[in-house]
Design a protein around this nucleic acid. Sequence first.
DNA 1: CCTCTGATCTTCT
DNA 2: GAAGATCAGAGGG
Length: 216
Amino acid sequence: MRPDRELRNAFAPPAGARRLGRKFFRRDPIVVAQELLGKRLVRIVDGQRLAGMIVETEAYLGIEDRAAHSFGGRRTLRTEPMFGDGGTAYVFLNYGIHYLLNIVTESKGIPSAVLLRAVEPTEGIDWMLKRRPASKTLHEISSGPGKLGAAFAIDKSLNAEDLVESERLFIERATKARLQSQLIVIRPRIGIDYALEWAHKPLRFYLAGNPHVSRP
DNA sequence: CCTCTGATCTTCT
DNA sequence: GAAGATCAGAGGG
């Protein structure tokens, strides 16, 4: 090994140092949903590293939230991951076709989660394009929860995965360039008209002006 | 640009 | 038996 490479390695951060830890996720989903914006979603699959900047999220508040699967304390085989510890993945099949990825928040026993709705692809774009043949532009690769699921190869095998420890799926801190403050737009959530008054609550968050957002 | 519709299947009634 | 945290393609403007 060349000396200069050794030097670089010596000063490199320890493995996993960039990854978000348990404490980040063990908080109010409304806070986590907003702070996840700008962070990096990473998926290791098929010997590939896929990554993208999170640009759109929604918060689901558990027991009282009519739009949340855990509404009314419903604890079933399906919703069980929502009752897990902060940092757990909750993956479910929507409309029989799309896998949607949530990140559980709060401590174990308190159901709440953040739905990842859109990501700006940054690594493994060619690999994603093969899974997203319908996308004609880069903006269409993961500009929606179902598209994101397909692009990042999200499926039931990742349900209940612990993103704090997993080697297949995790969240990394923003780089310095991404730490610049960006305007966050706050709107009602999408596709939950059945949730009555909860359909109007401002629980959807996205980065202003980002072209990868599902519905600006 | 927009609206409409079929796809597809797990979960719960 | 119905509904759903969606998407893509078709058709019209």
